[in-house]
């Protein structure tokens, strides 16, 4: 299908049989570019990623260098965002914190996708008892308010950034399993799968060559939104003292430390929270935009 026929389909509101193929990257990008929210989201996300990568170059000071003469100083020309309770430059710590959040977001989402998606794929394709067992296990994980399951895991394994990432990843497994199962169930009924099966194509080949590529779009959208959830969750665990060690410039950690001085030096808690909010907002906007762009029927 050409790009032009794809655009006709879009104008008609999108029909399942005529829908542009998902590999049509230029169409998706064009739709994304028409959404101001998605552009803002993508800009925030791009800034966040660049800051994460280039933190050592961008940071004006060593993020660990304490200066006990300049503790809890408000923003100034010398320290743009002020200093923390040990006199460390807040901006430099925030920039390094972006790197940590980026890593946490990617790894925990990676855990969720790599375990959850195959489970959903198997569950949806195999059906029957396998489906029952996998989905009941997922129901059990979903029975917990997600932050609580993460807390339970970190409390038992011991507080650390690695355990926090694993816990956040595990909590998201049922989200991906359910999503993937739903997609697989609908794709499994398509005529080309039936045709493939009838000529004797092995199941693993059908799954990896036909089903999997067609379920990528919802997984990409969900992962974008899930990175936002993961960054918020990691900050929450850090704030509760269940994440990275106290000296690490993780944003939740910084909020927990700064909380003690909230009435004398509020800037210590203002900026890390603002950073979390902007990044989460970016991923949310981009996720919403991607969803609409990949599936025009969803756009309102």
């Amino acid at each position: 299908m050409t790009a032009s026929s794809g655009s006709i389909v879009t104008r008609q509101g999108g029909d399942v049989a005529l829908r542009a193929p998902r590999s049509n990257l230029s169409m998706t990008l064009r739709r994304l570019a028409r959404s101001p929210g998605a552009i803002l989201g993508a800009t925030l996300v791009a800034m966040f990623i660049l800051i994460g990568i280039f933190a050592p170059v961008l940071a004006p000071y060593d993020f660990e260098a304490a200066d006990f003469v300049k503790v809890r100083q408000p923003p100034s020309a010398e320290h743009w965002l002020g200093t923390d309770e040990l006199g460390r430059d807040l901006l430099s710590r925030l920039l390094y914190g972006a790197r940590l959040s980026l890593v946490v977001g990617l790894i925990s989402v990676g855990i969720g996708v790599l375990i959850g998606a195959p489970l959903g794929l198997i569950s949806g394709y195999a059906g029957g008892r396998v489906d029952q067992v996998i989905m009941r296990l997922m129901d059990i994980l979903l029975a917990f308010p997600s932050i609580l399951l993460a807390i339970l895991m970190v409390a038992a394994f011991g507080p650390s950034l690695t355990n926090a990432m694993i816990a956040i990843g595990v909590v998201s497994i049922p989200v991906y399993a359910r999503l993937m199962r739903g997609s697989t169930l609908s794709i499994k009924e398509e005529l080309y799968i039936e045709a493939s099966r009838s000529v004797g194509t092995p199941s693993h080949h059908i799954l990896t060559r036909h089903v999997l590529p067609n379920t990528i779009a919802p997984i990409v959208v969900q992962s974008t939104l899930q990175i936002a959830v993961a960054i918020q969750a990691s900050a929450a665990l850090g704030f509760l003292g269940l994440g990275a060690p106290p000296d690490v410039p993780e944003w939740g950690n910084m909020l927990q430390k700064g909380r003690t001085y909230i009435l004398s030096a509020p800037h210590i808690v203002v900026f890390p929270g603002l950073a979390i909010m902007l990044v989460v907002l970016g991923f949310n906007l981009m996720g919403d935009g991607l969803r609409d762009a990949l599936d025009p029927r969803m756009a309102r």
Partner: peptide, 22 residues
């Protein structure tokens, strides 16, 4: 609404303290 979804609730709590107490 989007800000409400993106804001960490514990940070909003801290900001409320700053606003109402300071």
């Amino acid at each position: 609404a989007l800000l409400g979804v993106s804001m960490p609730i514990f940070w909003l709590g801290l900001m409320l303290i700053v606003f109402f107490a300071l």
